[in-house]
Amino acid sequence: MSFFSDPDAVARYAEGPVRLVPGFDGLQRMTTLLLRERVPATGNVLVLGAGGGLELKRFADAEPGWRFVGVDPSAEMLKLAEATLGPLNARTQLHEGYIDTAPPGPFDGATCLLTLHFIPAEQRLQTLKALWLRLLPGAPLVVAHHSFPQAPDDKARWLKRYAAFAVDSGVPAADAERAIAAISEKLPVLSPEADQALMTEAGFEGVELFYAGFSFKGWVGYKPR
Rank of each mutant, 00 (worst) to 15 (best):
M1R: 04
S2P: 04
F4Q: 03
A9G: 12
R12C: 08
R12H: 15
A14R: 15
E15F: 12
E15K: 10
G16W: 07
V18M: 01
V18L: 11
R19Y: 12
L20R: 15
L20I: 10
V21A: 13
P22I: 06
G23D: 14
F24C: 13
M30P: 00
L33A: 14
L34W: 14
L34A: 04
R38K: 15
V39T: 07
A41S: 12
T42H: 13
N44Y: 09
V45G: 02
V45I: 12
L46Y: 04
L46G: 01
L46N: 02
G51A: 06
L56S: 08
K57L: 15
K57R: 14
R58V: 15
F59W: 04
F59E: 09
A60G: 11
A62Q: 11
F68P: 05
D72K: 03
D72N: 10
P73M: 10
S74D: 02
A81S: 07
E82L: 03
A83Q: 09
T84P: 09
T84N: 14
T84Y: 02
L85T: 03
G86V: 07
N89G: 07
Q93C: 07
H95K: 07
E96Q: 15
E96Y: 02
E96H: 01
E96A: 08
G97E: 01
Y98A: 10
I99E: 03
D100I: 01
D100R: 13
A102Q: 08
A102K: 08
A110K: 00
A110R: 00
L113D: 01
H117P: 05
H117Q: 06
F118R: 02
P120L: 05
P120D: 10
P120H: 05
A121F: 01
Q123N: 06
R124L: 07
R124E: 07
L125W: 03
L125R: 05
L125P: 00
Q126I: 05
L128H: 06
K129W: 00
L131G: 00
L135K: 03
L136E: 14
L136W: 01
L141W: 00
V143F: 00
A144P: 04
H145F: 12
H146V: 03
F148L: 14
Q150R: 14
A156K: 13
A156Q: 12
L159H: 12
Y162F: 13
A164M: 04
A166Q: 08
D168C: 02
G170H: 10
P172I: 12
P172V: 15
P172T: 14
A173L: 08
A179T: 04
A179W: 08
I180Q: 03
S184R: 14
S184T: 13
E185S: 15
E185H: 07
K186N: 11
K186L: 11
K186I: 00
K186F: 02
L187H: 06
P188V: 07
P188T: 04
V189F: 09
V189N: 08
V189Y: 05
V189G: 11
P192C: 05
P192N: 09
A194Y: 13
L198S: 13
M199I: 04
T200E: 15
T200I: 10
E201V: 14
A202C: 06
G203C: 09
F204N: 06
E205T: 15
V207N: 05
F210V: 11
S215I: 14
F216M: 10
F216T: 05
G218M: 11
G218Q: 10
W219D: 01
W219F: 08
V220S: 02
P224D: 09
